[in-house]
Nucleic acid binder design. Structure first.
Lengths: 116, 116
DNA sequence: GCTTATTATATCGATGGTCGATATATAGAG
DNA sequence: CTCTATATATCGACCATCGATATAATAAGC
């Protein structure tokens, strides 16, 4: 699909993290900290993000316009950055879903052939 | 399960590569170059190993006794190193299969919730 | 009112594993 | 006798994640 780097063994984790973040954001606008909480809850604690991992990814996704971030004031001094999926982000997410399905089908078929 | 490091986002690629190698070896003894060819064939070209990736992994798996390697002479001067799964390797492979299934089930359920 | 925990974003150095290149050598094809 | 395929091995560059650290506002507990 146009514009997206293919899913390869070498970038599994990167694509995995990005796809999860986009899927969480697909529900509606959300700030970083909230994404991390949602992720932990929805995966039953299986997937967790260090914020040292999460924030750089958000910045990168924003930079390449896969998501859009807007600062919103929250109280007199506090502010939060709310992210939403762009149209590109939506396409990227759908593409990721199909890539992962194909990838895992092939992977599991090889693994299960070897299983005892 | 005892002795095996859990499957986490941070070590996806590593576990992915190891699981594939073990699954290929589950068919019977094989040398490194042969593993790479089998992999490409069985995945329809989707999974490929650089030998700069493959050999270090084989050495590591051998060192931790997940696989066992034996040098066998092949002609007057040539020799090849043939690997087989150990009992530990067998257990590791079965464990990997169940970990990956659980992991991907959760992952895809989150992704598909976001899909349009 | 004071202290602590929680919410919230951000950056940075260390770590670790893959990639691609390079090296070396034998066997087989033409 | 040259070229290609087979076969193993190592090394530096690269890159993304991890865990720690920093900063600050707000809510809760007492």
């Amino acid at each position: 699909m146009a514009g997206f780097e293919r899913l390869e063994a070498q970038n599994l984790t990167k694509n995995f993290n990005e796809a999860l973040i986009l899927a969480i954001l697909a529900r509606g606008e959300m700030h970083g900290y909230q994404i991390a909480l949602e992720m932990e809850e929805r995966s039953g604690g299986l997937f967790r993000f260090n914020h040292g991992t999460l924030y750089p990814i958000l910045h990168k996704l924003e930079k390449e316009k896969t998501i859009a971030g807007v600062w919103r004031p929250e109280g007199p001094k506090k502010k939060r950055k709310l992210y939403t999926l762009t149209r590109r982000g939506r396409r990227y997410l759908d593409w990721q879903a199909s890539e992962w399905r194909r990838f895992m089908e092939t992977f599991l078929s090889i693994i299960e052939e070897g299983e005892s």
